[in-house]
């Protein structure tokens, strides 16, 4: 039995070096060579300044930008989180009603049944970078008005949403989505 105890300690050191040190360092080294941008967080840089990450959603509340999904952590992912409110939560019901009313009012939505419910429910991560294409299109009129776009610029914006719509991966995995931060960065260029 004493022999097993001695092995335990030596083995623990050996297996820690293999799985806790060599393995992650090997993965890091390969990642840094093969996928440097992705491994370090898909950061968007402009003139040497980091504007954000392609994968981390940002807070957009003004009428001049496309809105992200609601966030339970105010878009600050340290730590990330959802609301964890259950399906019979009165607090969630109030949150939902307020968000929905506001969205319909601000975007002058006529057909209220067609709005995807993701715009009224907080995401799981608090920084969901995407919204559905429908939710983006519903916001075009509002954004155009807030920016005093003429018809041709508005048409451009519709085309922009269309061109930034990402199809399901490999044609069948996941949903079609629009990355809100990328869309808003392009929007500023119109």
């Amino acid at each position: 039995m004493k022999k097993q105890l001695l092995i335990t300690i030596k083995y623990f050191v050996a297996i820690t070096i293999v799985t806790g040190l060599i393995y992650p360092l090997f993965i890091s080294a390969v990642s840094m060579i093969v996928f440097p941008g992705k491994a370090s967080g898909s950061l968007i840089e402009k003139d040497g300044k980091v504007l954000g990450s392609e994968l981390i959603g940002q807070k957009f509340e003004s009428d001049k930008y496309f809105w992200s999904r609601p966030s339970a952590v105010d878009y600050n992912p340290a730590p990330s989180g959802g609301s964890n409110l259950g399906p019979t939560s009165a607090a969630l019901k109030k949150f939902y009603d307020d968000k929905r009313k506001n969205f319909i009012l601000k975007n002058s939505v006529v057909d209220t049944t067609s709005i995807p419910n993701e715009m009224f429910f907080a995401s799981a991560s608090g920084v969901d970078p995407h919204i559905s294409p429908v939710s983006a299109i519903l916001q075009v009129e509002r954004v155009s008005k807030a920016r005093n776009f003429d018809q041709s610029k508005k048409d451009k914006l519709y085309l922009l949403v269309d061109s930034l719509t990402e199809k399901p991966q490999f044609g069948f995995l996941g949903n079609a989505v629009v990355n809100v931060l990328l869309l808003n960065l392009e929007l500023d260029k119109i």
Partner: peptide, 11 residues
């Protein structure tokens, strides 16, 4: 299909 606590890319 409540999206509370779900991510759009997964659905």
């Amino acid at each position: 299909g409540l999206m509370e606590g779900k991510e759009v890319r997964f659905g």
